[in-house]
Write a protein that binds this DNA or RNA. Structure first.
Lengths: 208, 208
DNA sequence: AGGGCGACTTACAACATTGTCAACGGCCGA
DNA sequence: TCGGCCGTTGACAATGTTGTAAGTCGCCCT
């Protein structure tokens, strides 16, 4: 006898595929643009199958957001845990940007922010990151016998990084094309390298 | 005889009111969230009246975006034309941010960017602004007998300002609350003042 | 073997939304 | 005064969307 022809291969493989494809669509068209039938068509199931797994459209959105959130947390943590935060800050900025932009997290966060959906996961690590950045900064200053700026300054650096990455991810291409048409920097890598230099510069500044 | 009871007061006052209210809604719920019936209810007309004036839903969106775009251009120009660009940069940053954020332009631009609608108006002035900023910078450097960094550096400053304002407008509150919960800066004014200082600092830097 | 269960489908209900149509009433120019 | 135009309306058509109901199929456990 042949193995299972095609049905129910894993217990529920479809659930995962739905989540994956819905996630891709969500960051493309936003929460209001999601269409169950479209997802179903793409996945290769009927749309009630989605409702079967997630209860409702909103349940699906919630599940996708939840999943993306934990994925983002994990990505960010590994980005920082690579331990290069102190060695090559430009590479760190570029790497964080990539996990942020390349995986569509930035677009998703923007969609959610605009739609008024809470985005706890996305911001949950920010406080921690600011603490870490400031701790490293303070240690380095102490080693050099300099006076370190207050925590607020470090927090501002982190916030600025956030905003810059989000803005870049949302409309970086258009802004770059309009601001500096001559320079060939379609991906914005030059800009981010420049930004990383400025951030490091700031973190190395000390009080008089 | 009484004046016109209530009908057709100006030739078509309704058109303006529709544009105004649709604009407010557009920046609230985004292009996909606009509902003709809701607008009509708010304005106090029936929804075919909207279709009569703008042809279609898309026509309405287009008209609103067009209008907001020219308004933004005007706002930005006056912000810069106030002539304080050289005197009090922090005030300039704050003022630009206010016309950008307070009038909902930032949210609208974000919606449009995410939705894939072209946003020519929003970016059209950026090149010009970068040129102006660089020109002033260069003049000041020459007066002081210093070497001015290349245009790309000034353009990067402008881009960073854009991104920061956009990011701030979209999710500034959440990011601030997460990054630096202790500091009471709900409106982000302290952050923007800090940013303005950094921007000026950068613009005053010269090549070795 | 057979009952229960989970995954899934088809068909359908309920509803919202955009857009069309015919009609109406005031205003203006001929 | 009359005819036409403009802004507007109510009713309706067409379509798409979420959600429900009932039934099918295969698997697992007893």
């Amino acid at each position: 006898m042949p193995k299972k022809t095609k049905k129910t291969a894993p217990p529920s493989d479809a659930r995962e595929r739905i989540l994956t494809i819905a996630g891709r669509m969500l960051q493309q068209v936003g929460p209001d643009g999601l269409r169950l039938q479209e997802i179903a068509r793409e996945v290769g199931v009927s749309h009630p199958a989605i409702l079967h797994h997630f209860g409702s459209r909103e349940g699906l959105v919630h599940a996708v957001v939840e999943r993306a959130g934990t994925a983002l947390e994990a990505d960010i943590v590994t980005s920082f845990a690579a331990g290069e935060a102190e060695k090559d800050p430009a590479a760190l900025v570029e790497r964080v940007f990539r996990t942020f932009y390349g995986n569509g997290h930035a677009r998703l966060i923007a969609w959610l922010s605009l739609s008024g959906v809470s985005q706890d996961h996305a911001t949950s690590k920010l406080g921690e990151i600011a603490q870490i950045v400031h701790a490293i900064r303070k240690r380095k200053h102490e080693e050099a016998g300099l006076r370190c700026p207050p925590f607020e300054d470090s927090a501002n650096v982190v916030m600025l990084s956030c905003f810059a990455m989000l803005g870049d991810a949302i409309c970086g291409q258009a802004v770059r094309a309009a601001t500096n048409p001559a320079k060939k920097d379609p991906t914005g890598e030059r800009f981010r390298r420049w930004l990383a230099e400025r951030l490091v510069e700031r973190l190395e500044t000390s009080l008089p």
